[in-house]
């Protein structure tokens, strides 16, 4: 646990020593606001809730979160610091976990900085703050799933651009597996249970529930499993490199 906390602190600090953190936060806030007001018609809907804000989050995350995750391992490989890191007395999983938590908390900080919107909606009306809190948690959980996927992609290469593209592509597949475009590709030949299985992988289906403030057990288990599996795969990728 000591190693997890140490890696976590270093990684989090590393975000803020480069312009990346500030660029990411500014762009995330600007886009999240722009989508909520202009595309989501925040005012025109005349409802005291934040659904028009949350509904765009998965799409924002699709290209912003892989950008946060891409440096986690690729940078270590490029500069050679991975050799130092992996010869310190810590297990690979502890390092994987520390890095994941740092990147996840970083997206959490960016998400928390959207609080003026929450103040606004409370000033304008009387929203259900329980629903808003649940939606915030749900949005953060989706970001966590994307971070875990992006970290795996980052472990595969020393090139951050490749890590970004690969991460975004895998996230896209997870996001889209619930839409008809993907499902119809399965419907023709696969038995219904496979179609249902593919649909149940869809982050968008789960997120639509979360955005309404509904947190059910299946969604929680699904997201926790997805993150857990990704962290294990990440550990495996790093360890396989060692076996050469």
């Amino acid at each position: 646990m000591r190693a997890v906390a140490t890696v976590f602190k270093r990684e989090l600090a590393a975000y803020f020593t480069t312009p990346l953190a500030y660029v990411f936060i500014v762009i995330f806030l600007a886009l999240a606001g722009a989508f909520a007001f202009f595309v989501g018609a925040f005012f025109e809907r005349g409802q005291a809730d934040l659904e028009s804000f949350f509904v765009f989050h998965p799409w924002l995350y699709l290209f912003l979160v892989p950008a946060v995750a891409m440096r986690l391992w690729a940078e270590e490989r490029r500069t050679g610091t991975i050799e130092l890191l992996l010869t310190l007395p810590a297990s690979t999983f502890e390092i994987v976990l520390g890095k994941f938590l740092a990147a996840w908390l970083f997206t959490g900080i960016a998400l928390a900085l959207t609080f003026p919107l929450w103040l606004t909606v409370n000033y304008l009306g009387e929203p259900d703050n329980g629903v808003i809190l649940a939606a915030y948690l749900g949005s953060w959980a989706i970001a966590g799933a994307f971070i875990a996927i992006g970290a795996c992609a980052s472990a595969l290469t020393k090139n951050q651009v490749i890590a970004f593209v690969l991460g975004a592509a895998i996230c896209f597949l997870f996001l889209m597996s619930g839409v008809d475009l993907v499902l119809s590709a399965f419907r023709g030949w696969a038995p219904p249970w496979i179609v249902d299985l593919v649909a149940s992988f869809s982050l968008i289906t789960h997120f639509n529930e979360l955005a309404k403030g509904v947190i059910n057990a299946a969604t929680a288990v699904y997201l926790a499993t997805l993150v857990g599996v990704c962290l294990l795969v990440n550990t495996l990728i790093v360890d396989l490199e060692k076996a050469g």
Partner: peptide, 30 residues
């Protein structure tokens, strides 16, 4: 690993950190 001090080829280190912060990180990991 606990009993080894290792200088890898090319002395890799986190370039964005100061030596003091970097050494503190390695110490904490140890």
């Amino acid at each position: 690993k606990r009993r080894i001090g290792y200088l890898p080829e090319g002395a890799p280190a986190y370039g964005d950190m100061t030596p003091l912060a970097f050494l503190r990180f390695v110490g904490a990991m140890r």
